[in-house]
């Protein structure tokens, strides 16, 4: 398939003696939204952090748009890539964090335009125009000059999504984007994400929000103890999950 955006092949990752990923393989195609579910400690967050090389994989390989992430081939061995080319690869992989990680010393707009100006070399005018457009799109057109400290969690996470979009990434990774939010504001963040999914953004979303998975996901992946144990459409998971472990997990969160 030519439209594979992200391909993970037999990815292994260990922290000291603890093996967190024990051979994860997953393809994500263009315009696809994949939700990764699973109990805490199952390795789902570690896995998506490997995709933009915030964590180094110890075995296997990950490619984004055909490019090997974090490593380059040297003879028959893989060596870690230079900081410069890793940084360049990350420009096409957006990431939205559980705890937002907005830059508190910059306004909402400054958060959004920082990387387009400093990394992509856009002019301030161009980046600002696009930044305002993106903030408007996530419903925060009136908050451009507000500092993150003055925004609610839901608003901060929407700024973070706009910041990510400003880089025009091929893929956005969401690491439990609503887990740190009050229940009453998760809806506004999920609505923005659903809209993105329907517009065809390629997304990998670690989440426990089965409602979101039902509305927006093309595919759901269940991870447990460092491996993918089941995958299928959202309907598959709601109607007839096969694995006993999946049934148990879903009965707890639904």
């Amino acid at each position: 398939m030519t439209d594979v955006v992200m391909r993970a092949e037999d990815v292994h990752k260990r922290f000291g003696r603890l093996e967190v990923l024990k051979g994860v393989s997953l393809d994500v195609s263009q315009r696809e939204t994949v939700c990764i579910i699973g109990p805490s400690g199952s390795g789902k967050t570690t896995f998506i952090r490997c995709i933009n090389h915030l964590e180094k994989v110890d075995g296997g390989r990950i490619t984004v748009n055909g490019q090997l992430i974090g490593y380059r081939q040297k003879g028959d061995k893989l060596v870690e890539d230079s900081e410069k080319s890793i940084a360049r690869q990350r420009t096409q992989i957006g990431m939205v964090f559980q705890r937002f990680n907005l830059f508190p010393h910059k306004t909402a707009l400054e958060n959004v335009i920082e990387a387009p100006i400093r990394v992509l070399g856009q002019s301030k005018e161009q980046a600002t125009e696009e930044g305002v457009r993106l903030l408007t799109r996530v419903g925060l057109g009136d908050k451009t000059d507000t500092y993150p400290g003055k925004l609610s969690g839901g608003q901060q996470q929407r700024v973070a999504i706009a910041r990510s979009l400003a880089m025009k990434p091929a893929l956005i990774l969401f690491d439990e984007p609503t887990s740190a939010l009050d229940p009453e504001v998760t809806g506004e963040v999920l609505a923005v994400m659903e809209e993105l999914a329907h517009e065809g953004m390629t997304m990998i979303v670690v989440t426990h929000e089965m409602g979101f998975a039902r509305e927006a996901a093309d595919r759901v992946v269940m991870m447990d103890e460092g491996v993918i144990i089941e995958e299928g459409t959202p309907e598959h998971f709601f109607v007839a999950p096969e694995q006993e472990r999946t049934k148990q997990f879903l009965s707890k969160i639904l």
Partner: peptide, 14 residues
Amino acid sequence: DKGQMEAAKSLGMR
């Protein structure tokens, strides 16, 4: 917070 460096890196900053 370590997340600040991670956020910056994930935006392609060196």
